[in-house]
């Protein structure tokens, strides 16, 4: 463990401080997690301030200056249509950050309640939801995405909603399994004996106790989301040209790899850093929660 496990008791007086403050205090103390948080905050700022930061119009083509190497007027060079790569990278931050959040958000919105219901009640609801999840897992997610896009038209939101649907059985499984083990804990009976409603039992006692595996799964899926967006955009069902995302840039750079190898490096690095930041932040969040967990 990186930090001392509550060696000195905190003598908090006054009104009850929220558990959230404790959580953030611990999170900030972990260098890797805090660094990742900073990276993500910086990227969010970049996305919001893109028009101010970008040196040029990301969609302005200049067919005379195609595939320019870095340097000169273009810090990261130009692509095969002569567009400024730095500007496209900066504007691309918007979709690249939004896309995995949509996917994981949709996945969690479906997977978490379903997992809680299946895990808590077991029996018939569990059987039904688990079979449904198995069926969804057996569908290739790309095919699912194409079907949704075919029905609703190509757009980033539609494509990522489809990816979220494909994520939901994974989240469901993690939440279901964790819920099943928490459901039989004595403290659940204790709270029921106090007179808690089932709703309160699930929301206040089960959910926080399944948070750790859920957070880890969610951050892994955020990383997958970044890649899924790139893949779907490449197939033309996600981001629509001339809009840019890091995935689009990477794919486009890949096409020109022999002519202009430098093109794929910045976006590739950026994606790597982003995925790593998601992972480290997730681990840090889990550890910040984990301090309260009972040690057997």
């Amino acid at each position: 463990m990186t930090t001392a496990t509550a060696a000195e008791p905190e003598l908090v007086s006054g009104p009850t401080a929220g558990p959230f403050r404790r959580f953030t205090r611990r999170l900030v103390r972990q260098p890797l997690a805090f660094g990742s948080l900073l990276v993500i905050v910086l990227l969010v700022i970049t996305a919001l301030a893109a028009p101010l930061l970008a040196p040029m119009d990301p969609n302005a083509t200049d067919l005379v200056a195609r595939n320019q190497p870095p340097g000169g007027g273009h810090l990261l060079g130009t692509d095969d249509l002569g567009r400024d790569l730095l500007s496209r990278l900066i504007y691309g931050t918007r979709i690249t950050l939004m896309a995995p959040l949509i996917a994981v958000g949709v996945g969690a919105l479906i997977g978490v309640p379903a997992g809680l219901i299946a895990g808590f009640w077991g029996r018939t609801p569990d059987w039904l939801l688990s079979r449904l999840a198995d069926a969804m897992l057996s569908l290739p997610s790309l095919v699912l995405a194409m079907a949704i896009v075919a029905a609703r038209g190509p757009s980033t939101v539609n494509a990522m909603t489809a990816v979220g649907l494909a994520f939901s059985p994974r989240i469901f499984r993690v939440v279901r399994g964790a819920t099943m083990s928490v459901r039989h804990e004595v403290f659940i009976d204790a709270s029921r004996a106090i007179g808690c409603t089932t709703k309160r039992l699930i929301a206040v006692h089960v959910l926080p106790n399944v948070a750790a595996p859920l957070i880890v799964q969610a951050t892994v899926l955020l990383g997958f989301g970044v890649l899924a967006e790139a893949g779907l955009s490449f197939l033309g069902v996600g981001v629509q040209p001339p809009e840019a995302s890091w995935g689009v840039l990477l794919r486009r750079g890949f096409d020109n790899l022999y002519m202009a190898p430098f093109q794929s490096i910045p976006s590739g690095l950026a994606i790597t850093v982003l995925i790593l930041a998601f992972q480290f932040l997730g681990d840090g969040m889990r550890d910040s929660l984990g301090k309260e967990l009972r040690r057997a």
Binding site: T16, V186, F187, C196, L293, R294
Partner: peptide, 27 residues
């Protein structure tokens, strides 16, 4: 039944399992 439950409360055997590990004592 939920409203009546306050009349009879329970203390369990295993004090390590009967308290929600994610909750402060005050909660």
């Amino acid at each position: 039944l939920r409203r009546e439950r306050r009349r009879m409360q329970m203390v369990f055997q295993d004090p390590y399992a009967s308290l929600d590990p994610t909750k402060m004592v005050v909660h």
